[in-house]
Every structure is written in C-alpha cells, then in structure tokens.
Amino acid sequence: MSPEDHYFSPAGPRVLAHRGLALEAPENTLLAFAHALAHGVDYLETDVHASADGVAVVAHDPDLSRVLGRPERVGDLTAAELGSLDLGDGQHMPTLAEALDAFPDARFNIDLKAAAAIPSAVEMISSLRAERRVLLTSFSERRRRAALALLPAVATSASGPVFAGALLAATVRGGPAVRRLLRGIQAVQIPERALGLSTVTPARLRQYHAAGVEVHVWTINDVDAMHRLLDLGVDGIVTDRADLAVDAVRSRP
C-alpha cells in the first residue's frame, strides 16, 4: 500500500478540521487539534512557517498581529521564543514535530506557507516516520514541488497555479487536459468559486474524479452548504466547524 493510498483510506467523505476546532481553543494549537479529534475528525488541516532559526512551526499568518496583536513576523523569533508566547488557554505555538508527535493517529494536511519551512518540515516528517499520514501542499507550485522532491511518497494536493490550469482546462479543453495537469496529484482543495467560475459543478466534479483526484472544498461552515456539496459528490469538507461537519457526514445514508 502506498502512502497516498493510506492517507485516503478508507473512502470518504472526509472532514478536514481547518486549523483544528477553535471554538474553545486558539486556532492551530494542540488544544484545537485535540478538540477536533475528540469530535471524531481524522484529518487536521494546518499551516507551517519557519522560525528565525529555521524550525517549522504551526502558524497560518506570517506575523503575530492577528493572533496576538504584536508586530513581529514569525520568522523574526526563534522556535523557543515562539513557543513561550501565550496564545490563550495555556496554549503556545507548537512546532510541526510537536503536533505530529502529540497526535500519532491523526492525518495532517499541511500547507507550506514559506519556503524556509520546507527543510525542517521534511526532516520532522521523516524523523517521526509520518509520511503515510501527511499530505503536503502549498498555494505556491514551487514550494509544493520542492517539498515533494524531498518526500516523493507523501500525498499532495494541487497548488493554486496547477488548479487554475485544471479549472480552465475543465471549462474549455475537457478531460484529457485535466488529467494531464493533475497527474501525480491526489486531491484538489478548492473554494466554491475561483477565477470567476464555479469550481464544483457536476460536470467539473466528473472531470476531476476522472483524473483520479479527490475534491475537498473550503472553508464550509454552514450545515446546509455541507449537505449540498456532499450531495454533489465532493470527497471532503474543509471547515472551521468540524463538530457540525462530522454530524452532517454521519447523518447521511
């Protein structure tokens, strides 16, 4: 069984907890991840930046202004300094290794937000032998390819430019072009609209699926929208409300 097969087994639909479940915990913290897993989630969606000393740390934003009201960039502080910051509820900014080690049965969907984070992230994933439970992605195709060159067996989803090309191909050129563009990719993780187009029409879903990729839609927090997308046949819901999404998936036939 390849790591890609393991990551997407068993069959969905899947709930991907966007930065954990941050209703009663700061986002992207060990507590937020624990809350998501306690609700029955298997997949934790998260992000990594690099600290000043090159350590991959779990953080969405490049700076601390939104989460702490501080002007520093994540890359201005060492991992130890970042780990000493109080994000609330006794939580700190974990390293990627801390998160992977704390939840050894969880599967992680990791958005590489900075090229500087790639060497450390790759080393952490390898040292913890977590390849089979990790998907690496990035909005940047250059970052995605750089990471996959070092960890070729992990699962991956399309970068922004690759999906844009696939969406246009699905609109204009048809299935063979879509399959060619998505070769070597296991998922597209997308908003409902991009480039002024609906991304998850029945016809486009058929083309993505024919290319052998799963379709995960973000960021869906409304239960009716979850059911509508599941009715269309999407394979995953990326959500801030993992509690609601798990119930929605379980309530279906």
Rank of each mutant, 00 (worst) to 15 (best):
152 P>Q: 04
153 A>L: 11
152 P>D: 08
138 S>W: 01
129 R>A: 15
140 S>L: 06
152 P>A: 08
135 L>C: 10
149 A>R: 13
143 R>A: 12
137 T>L: 03
155 A>P: 13
151 L>T: 00
136 L>C: 05
142 R>E: 15
128 L>T: 14
158 A>Y: 01
161 P>G: 07
140 S>A: 11
149 A>V: 02
140 S>C: 09
148 L>M: 10
133 R>I: 04
130 A>V: 09
159 S>Q: 06
137 T>K: 05
149 A>M: 07
160 G>L: 14
143 R>T: 00
156 T>F: 01
130 A>I: 03
151 L>G: 05
147 A>H: 06
155 A>Y: 09
147 A>C: 09
144 R>H: 05
142 R>A: 15
139 F>I: 11
153 A>I: 08
150 L>D: 07
160 G>S: 10
145 R>M: 10
127 S>A: 15
143 R>H: 13
145 R>A: 15
134 V>Q: 05
154 V>T: 14
153 A>M: 11
136 L>T: 02
141 E>L: 10
161 P>T: 08
137 T>D: 02
132 R>W: 03
127 S>W: 02
135 L>P: 07
133 R>A: 08
151 L>Q: 05
162 V>A: 14
130 A>M: 00
139 F>N: 11
146 A>P: 01
145 R>I: 06
127 S>T: 12
142 R>M: 11
151 L>N: 04
134 V>K: 00
154 V>R: 02
156 T>E: 11
147 A>W: 03
134 V>C: 10
132 R>H: 14
135 L>K: 02
138 S>E: 04
142 R>F: 10
